[in-house]
Simulated assay, not measured.
Amino acid sequence: MDVATKHPLFEKGVQFIAAIFGPVVNVLCAVGLLKGALTICTTLHWLAPSNSTYQVLWLLSNVFFSFLPIFLAFTSAKVLKTNPFTAVLIAAFLVQPQLTTLLTHHATLFGVTLPNTRYESTVLPIIFAVILLYFVESGLKRYLPEVIQAMFVPLLSLLIVLPVTLFLLGPIGNLLAKGVTLGYNNTMAISPIIAMAILSGLFPAFIMVEISTALAPVVINNIAVKGDDTILISLGICLFSLAGMSLAV
């Protein structure tokens, strides 16, 4: 009996993460290839960083990470079957530059100072917000008359979800993401060879119990925050090792 059979909640959690990040990973690969092509072009002096073509394409490769919460809001809403337009609106509000400026200058809401949290290129805050949106919408649809639901469910959802996200879910989500990334990076700092060897050796087990996709948030957060990631390199080492063993057999 595997881990997923013994722990159905664990299985559902992994499936939830996979459903959210599956479509996003494809876009991540696309912008990653574009970044790689641009790096090759500048290294071989085919394009200069001051060239407008390079700058436009480089902006295209970066915009995905800047507005990552919007992509995750859409996929999370699809998985939870909640209103995708409300979810995307929440994400768009969180990543707009005006909000960042307000939070930097200690803006208040209902007389209470908002935590100074940045939401661009983040992963967990918007996922937490959409999960809360799901429960809020479900409750409102249960108690509000159907004739006014189309107008008041999105309005009341925004008025409930956004303050909770700004005061609580956003700071907690960013703190968790930083903790996971810091722990992984500290392990890499001690010995990249040992850390990547251990991770590469564990990947087959991760795949067998269907938890390999749970690493997607860490990968995307590393690339968004630092601009690089070694988890995918470890996966590549694992796959090439398996291919070598298969060829030997």
Rank of each mutant, 00 (worst) to 15 (best):
N221M: 10
K35Q: 10
G13Q: 06
P23C: 03
L60N: 10
A37E: 09
I211R: 02
S200H: 00
Q55K: 10
L33R: 10
E120K: 12
L33Q: 09
H7A: 15
L176E: 05
F167K: 05
N185A: 11
V31I: 08
T117Y: 00
A18I: 11
S157K: 01
C41A: 12
V24G: 01
D2G: 13
N83C: 04
A214D: 01
A4L: 12
S121D: 05
A224W: 00
Y143P: 10
T165E: 04
N174M: 12
L202P: 01
L159N: 07
L182P: 11
C29Y: 13
L247Y: 12
F10Y: 10
L109H: 06
V147K: 15
G139I: 05
N83K: 01
F135E: 10
L59I: 13
L9R: 13
N62I: 08
I193T: 14
L133K: 03
V153W: 00
F152Q: 04
L132C: 06
L33D: 06
F135R: 12
F65T: 03
A107S: 08
T122H: 02
A195I: 06
L44K: 08
I207R: 14
P163W: 01
L159M: 09
F21M: 06
E137D: 08
P154D: 03
H45I: 13
L140C: 04
T43P: 10
S212R: 08
K6W: 10
F16I: 09
V112Q: 11
N83G: 02
H106M: 08
L59P: 11
T86L: 07
G22W: 06
E146K: 11
F110H: 06
L114V: 08
V24D: 02
F21G: 00
L114A: 03
L175N: 14
I198Y: 02
K6N: 13
M245S: 15
E11W: 15
L60T: 12
M188I: 11
I237W: 02
S138P: 11
A91M: 05
I190H: 07
Q15W: 14
F74D: 02
L124M: 10
H7V: 14
V130C: 04
L99W: 00
V88L: 08
A4T: 11
D2F: 11
L94E: 02
N186I: 15
L176Q: 07
P217A: 04
A87Y: 03
A48I: 14
V225S: 10
L182D: 14
L38Q: 01
L94F: 05
A48R: 13
P125S: 05
T181A: 13
S246Y: 12
I90A: 04
M245L: 15
A91H: 02
